[in-house]
């Protein structure tokens, strides 16, 4: 029983007599009322109730205090920091600089990518970085090794050449070289073709190939058993569509 209103009442239901609202409902709605989130009519009823009901009036005071305390954290309140005048300008400038930097980096990355993938007047990739070329050459050599290893069991024992016969003995025939598919893909890629079409790079690659041959021969390994032949003389026929541009001698 609420002594402020007098008489018995059912909790949650409007109080008969002074206010059509129950204390429970009023207290539920007080936060919204203080936030100005109720209709004008409901606000009037609540105010009226709180004026006459001591308990609800006290509740409203406490709620208002909590609300005012929270407001200390609003911009400009005692609980908010005092920011220097250039705070936001410097914050903005840093963001704009970061955007600018990222844009430039994207453009630079795209430029480098284009250099690797497209042919633009001469062999600029050489200038772009030797590590890339080294990686390419290493991939090629690794592919050759793997190809040899994979091809060995298939090599006929009675044939020192291993792979299919060929005229001249010096021409590399694609069928006689067992390269992994990814190496073939690499050799056949647009970027590699662009590289291979450059005389300087081809010469470098040819040199690497010769060194590789020399080292392998010096170690006593028989490359021919691996399924491909060593070029010994000028090729007579057209080069392999894949390797011809790189290791053959007629296209450079």
């Amino acid at each position: 029983m609420n002594p402020e209103h007098g008489g018995a009442r059912i909790p949650g239901l409007p109080q008969a007599g002074r206010s059509p609202l129950s204390c429970r409902l009023v207290r539920e709605l007080l936060p919204e009322a203080l936030g100005g989130e109720l209709h004008e009519e409901a606000m009037k009823l609540l105010e009226d109730h709180a004026r006459h009901c001591h308990a609800c009036g006290a509740e409203r005071v406490r709620l208002k205090e909590a609300r005012e305390a929270l407001a200390l954290l609003k911009e400009g309140g005692a609980g908010s920091p005092s920011l220097p005048e250039d705070f936001f300008r410097s914050m903005r400038a840093e963001v704009l600089e970061e955007i600018d930097w990222r844009r430039k980096k994207r453009e630079e990355d795209a430029r480098i990518r284009d250099l690797h993938l497209t042919r633009k007047g001469g062999f600029r990739v050489l200038g772009a970085g030797l590590p890339g070329i080294g990686l390419l050459a290493a991939t090629l050599l690794l592919g050759l090794f793997l190809g040899r290893g994979l091809g060995r069991p298939e090599a006929p024992k009675d044939s020192p050449a291993g792979g299919p016969a060929h005229a001249g003995g010096g021409r590399i025939v694609e069928k006689s070289v067992h390269l992994p598919q990814d190496t073939k893909d690499l050799l056949d890629s647009k970027g590699f073709r662009a590289l291979a079409s450059d005389p300087q790079f081809a010469e470098k690659l040819r040199k690497i190939w010769r060194e590789f041959q020399d080292q392998t021969m010096a170690s006593g390994d028989d490359l021919s058993a691996g399924g491909f032949d060593l070029p010994e003389s000028e090729p007579e026929g057209p080069p392999s569509p894949i390797l011809g541009n790189v290791l053959g001698r007629t296209d450079f």
Binding site: A69, A78, G79, S80
Partner: peptide
Amino acid sequence: YRRTASPEEQERAARV
């Protein structure tokens, strides 16, 4: 960045 406020206000703000 501390705002110049009375100690009471600062204490109250810190509690909030």
